[in-house]
């Protein structure tokens, strides 16, 4: 946990200038489209478009490499897990069986299973870039107003803002406590025994939990003193109204979703079947 969660990086690009609400809705709608469909043609199109948006946002790989690698490993594990538990799931879906490798026992390798797993992998390629773009091009203060703009009550939206505000604080506190304990002689590396490491981690986690929960009263009191929650509505310092670019964004997102649904009709199901 050496790297921070990815965060906002200020740049002046067309993506940064879009409103947070527009970007959030785009992310939700296109993710929905990618989730619903298993039509490879649409998924590839969305994936290419997602990568193009990354380029447009001027997000460099080194900025996101930690999270990207982590998410990739997670996605690969997921795909492998699906194969392990359903090695011929694809055969059932596509109605044909083209064996590439006879394998061992139930673990054959077929074109159909590979094709299915390919679709799963592309889905990740569709949504991970979009999530990264939204997070890195939207100022954290705009997160809350974005949620409020799309209908989430402002108090809930504000809780989201508070959480985002405190995640880095708690992470930093974790490292501070860890270094303090190591300075007192606690050994956490592989040199230590398992029991020692468990005990060591508890010695970090316990004070982290205590100090996190202790700050609740301070925060709540400060909010009360500033009259939080007194009115049914509130204004937002970081509010950004929807403009032409945002409407184009929403139109594009709706288009993806509609195409996704239409393809279900055309394919007579969620799956595009090249063997039919």
């Amino acid at each position: 946990m050496q790297a921070k969660l990815i965060g906002y990086q200020h740049r002046d690009t067309v993506i940064h200038r879009l409103s947070g609400a527009g970007k959030l809705l785009f992310f939700i709608l296109v993710s929905l489209a990618a989730m619903i469909s298993y039509d490879t043609r649409l998924l590839v199109l969305i994936a290419i478009f997602s990568v193009f948006l990354l380029y447009l946002s001027e997000i460099h790989f080194k900025d996101v490499s930690f999270v990207a690698v982590f998410a990739t490993v997670f996605a690969v594990l997921n795909v492998l897990m699906v194969y392990l538990f359903s090695p011929e799931y694809g055969v059932g879906l596509y109605g044909e069986r083209s064996v590439i490798w006879q394998g061992i026992g139930a673990y054959t390798l077929t074109s159909q299973e590979l094709f299915y797993l390919l679709n799963l992998a592309i889905k990740y390629l569709c949504t991970i870039p979009l999530a990264i773009i939204f997070l890195m091009t939207t100022h954290p203060s705009q997160f809350a107003s974005s949620l409020n703009q799309i209908g989430v009550p402002y108090k809930i939206a504000y809780s989201v803002s508070l959480t985002l505000r405190y995640i880095p604080d708690l992470q930093e506190e974790f490292f501070t406590i860890k270094m303090s304990q190591e300075a007192r002689g606690m050994e956490l590396s592989k040199k230590a025994s398992l029991m020692q490491r468990i005990k060591g981690n508890l010695l970090i986690i316990t004070p982290l939990i205590f100090s996190s929960l202790e700050r609740i009263d301070t925060i709540a009191t400060a909010m009360e003193l500033r009259r939080f929650g007194k009115e049914k509505k509130r204004t937002w310092y970081s509010y950004q109204a929807l403009k032409k670019g945002d409407y184009i964004t929403l139109l594009l997102a709706t288009l993806f979703l509609v195409v996704s649904l239409l393809l279900i009709l055309q394919n007579q199901g969620r799956f595009y079947n090249p063997w039919k």
């Binding site: 508070l162 959480t163 405190y166 609740i216 925060i219 909010m223």
Partner: peptide
């Protein structure tokens, strides 16, 4: 109980 607790507490909880 303070009204703000309803929103501050889940925020810290979720962050934790």
């Amino acid at each position: 109980m303070k009204k703000a607790h309803v929103y501050a507490i889940p925020a810290i909880g979720a962050a934790l």
